[in-house]
Design a protein around this nucleic acid. Structure first.
Lengths: 168, 168
DNA sequence: CGAAGATAGTTTACAAGGAAATTAAAAAAT
DNA sequence: ATTTTTTAATTTCCTTGTAAACTATCTTCG
């Protein structure tokens, strides 16, 4: 999947540089979208050949940190709507990456845990998402990236620290 | 269109607060997505009844700041792929908000300008996107929001200032 | 104890967004 | 001057993500 929006400078990219944005240049909504598209492009540049889709790693990662987490709680955590969460979870289960368990004490809900294969998958792919070799490259310093992350958490209401106790 | 992801706290929202994120809590990619979804929800909360769609205002706004801008340049500026830009531009043209003009000196391209109706539309809707009454509410101070915007521009490579000359 | 209301996840249908192929036009190469 | 290559936008088809309706299950109420 080769994206039209390539990262190497092009004549038309130069043309975009001459566009006046006015107040939009300071609009967080607009800036979030542009950053999101850039990240998406970088994701496919690095991982386009793998069978990993955007968001799937996050899903598996959060399950690895919270074995037995309920599907609805996971959906809420990752800001994914229930319908899409159902499809994604079933796709990962079909690939043998996670277990779906219906608890006896609440047969409406689904509890999720990684399989050994899923754990290996998360371990093998972590370097693409965290640390200096992550797919999303940028020109910010470590301090600037930390400030950006802090402000984004503030913006969306996510705490800076892990909760005291794990969710069940 | 009532989003499942409501902003008022709910029992399941409390459950999400108890989830351990590990390194994901500091991942800019993940944080950008959560912020994006939150913005999307806020957009529909404020403007769900209107005939405005996400991104359409930005499109009209940039055209208002750059009359005669080429469609490809606009697409690049807003990080929208050409196919989608075609559909969105034609939809706005059908609503009488903009003119599509094929210049004699390059009949491949399309130049865009707002109609009077489009200009009125942008003027009438600006307060929903810029300033203290914008739809995207958050708890950041003005200084923090400015820093966030600055770091997002740094992240995606967008300059802090307007270009010296308008694009043709 | 049974009915009504709420919750959790699933299914279906649809809209948004984009890849790939296409068309039309301009620029570059021969 | 003609052919080839490149550019700009469009069309078609597909995937992703979600609203709405649905099913199954649990909780609350009378």
């Amino acid at each position: 999947m080769g994206a039209v929006g390539k990262l190497a400078p092009k004549p038309s990219a130069d043309a975009a540089a001459g566009v006046r944005l006015g107040a939009l240049r300071h609009s967080i909504g607009f800036l979030l979208r542009v950053c999101q598209v850039r990240l998406y492009d970088q994701f496919y540049e690095r991982l386009g050949d793998s069978d990993l889709r955007p968001g799937e790693f996050s899903l598996l990662w959060v399950i690895s940190q919270n074995p037995g987490i309920k599907q609805g709680v996971l959906a809420q955590t990752l800001a994914i709507k229930p319908a899409h969460m159902t499809k994604t979870v079933r796709r990962c289960a079909a690939r043998g990456l996670l277990h779906r368990v219906i608890p006896e004490d609440d047969r409406r809900s689904v509890q999720l845990s990684l399989t050994l294969r899923g754990t290996d998958f998360v371990t093998a792919n972590s370097h693409n998402f965290f640390g200096p070799t992550a797919y999303n490259t940028h020109s910010l310093t470590e301090e600037e990236a930390a400030t950006l992350a802090h402000l984004l958490r503030r913006f969306c209401g996510l705490p800076d620290c892990e909760p005291e106790r794990a969710a069940r």
